[in-house]
Simulated scan of single mutants.
Amino acid sequence: MPTEAIALSQPQAQLDPHFTLRPLRLDEDVAVIHPWYQMDYAHYWNMQDMTLEATRDFYADALGSGHMRAFMGFYRGAPAFVMECYDPRHDPLGKRYAVQPGDLGMHFFVGPSAQPIRHFTRDVLRAVMAFLFDELGARRVVVEPDIRNHKVHRLNRLVGFVEQGPVELPAKTALLAFCTPADFFQSLEGSSPL
């Protein structure tokens, strides 16, 4: 387990215990995540043309704002994904819906894998959701992926997100969706065994 990693509570058998998260350490982690954002499948993140320095600056500015947090996710001790969470009240999204107390916006990105693992991205998202509810105390998780990103819409539905419809944001047309703890745990209970 990485130093200072936060292990996930395991109230449900469907949560893989091999996932851990820790706060992003920009100086050491940017060299890991920058190449991930250059991958073909990263185009929805709009960071493919950013240099390593620009990626570092983006995170330094966002983290310095006090309204965004970022975490490095590990699988069996190896870097596997990044998760960002933010306060929608301080984001353009907050002007597009009625923000409620306890709302937490979220983005996640899964790094490339040397060996495919069945349902890996779904399990990453389950780990992220458990972390947001259990460790960060979110009352509702808010997502706004690009409306064309059908793969992530399907994943979001699998973990309990309820779609609200399209919203116009500065860089994209997004599909707004919400997930409560009850929605998430119901999705786990309704899932088939792995």
Rank of each mutant, 00 (worst) to 15 (best):
E168I: 11
D123C: 03
A5L: 05
Y37C: 02
Q164R: 14
M47L: 10
G111M: 00
G64Y: 08
R89H: 08
Q48T: 12
G165L: 09
L21A: 08
M83Q: 09
C179L: 10
V143C: 12
V124N: 00
D146Y: 05
Q100I: 03
Y75E: 02
P92I: 09
P116I: 04
L52T: 10
P181K: 10
P88D: 07
N156F: 09
K95R: 14
L26P: 01
L155G: 10
F161K: 08
R22H: 12
P11L: 07
N156A: 15
Q186F: 11
V82H: 09
N156C: 14
F120E: 05
G73V: 00
L24C: 04
F81R: 01
D61S: 15
V32P: 03
W36R: 03
H90V: 05
E163G: 13
P23G: 00
A78M: 13
V128Q: 00
R154D: 14
R96I: 01
G94P: 02
P35R: 06
G190Y: 09
R96W: 00
L176N: 04
S191H: 09
A177F: 06
F108L: 15
I6C: 07
F58L: 14
L26Q: 02
Q14G: 07
M1K: 12
R96A: 08
S9W: 07
S187F: 07
P17D: 10
Y37G: 00
D103M: 03
P11D: 04
A171I: 13
N149K: 06
G190Q: 15
R89P: 08
A31V: 13
V30K: 02
V167K: 12
F81H: 01
Y41C: 11
E189H: 09
R126E: 00
L136I: 03
Q48L: 05
Q100S: 08
E135M: 11
A60Y: 06
L15P: 03
A138G: 00
D57Y: 07
D57F: 07
R154W: 12
E84T: 09
I147E: 13
I117P: 00
E168L: 10
R139W: 07
E189T: 12
L176W: 01
K151N: 09
G94L: 05
A7V: 05
R140W: 02
G73T: 01
F131P: 04
S9A: 15
P2W: 01
N149C: 09
A42P: 02
E189F: 08
E53F: 06
D57Q: 14
M1H: 13
D146A: 13
W45Y: 13
R56P: 01
V30W: 06
A78W: 05
D183A: 07
K172P: 04
G105Q: 10
Y44E: 11
R139Q: 13
L132F: 03
P2C: 07
E135H: 14
Y41W: 14
Q38T: 15
V128K: 01
F184E: 04
D16W: 01
H153A: 12
R126Y: 02
E189P: 04
V30A: 15
P23Q: 11
H107V: 06
A31G: 13
Y75D: 00
R22T: 05
E28Y: 04
G77N: 06
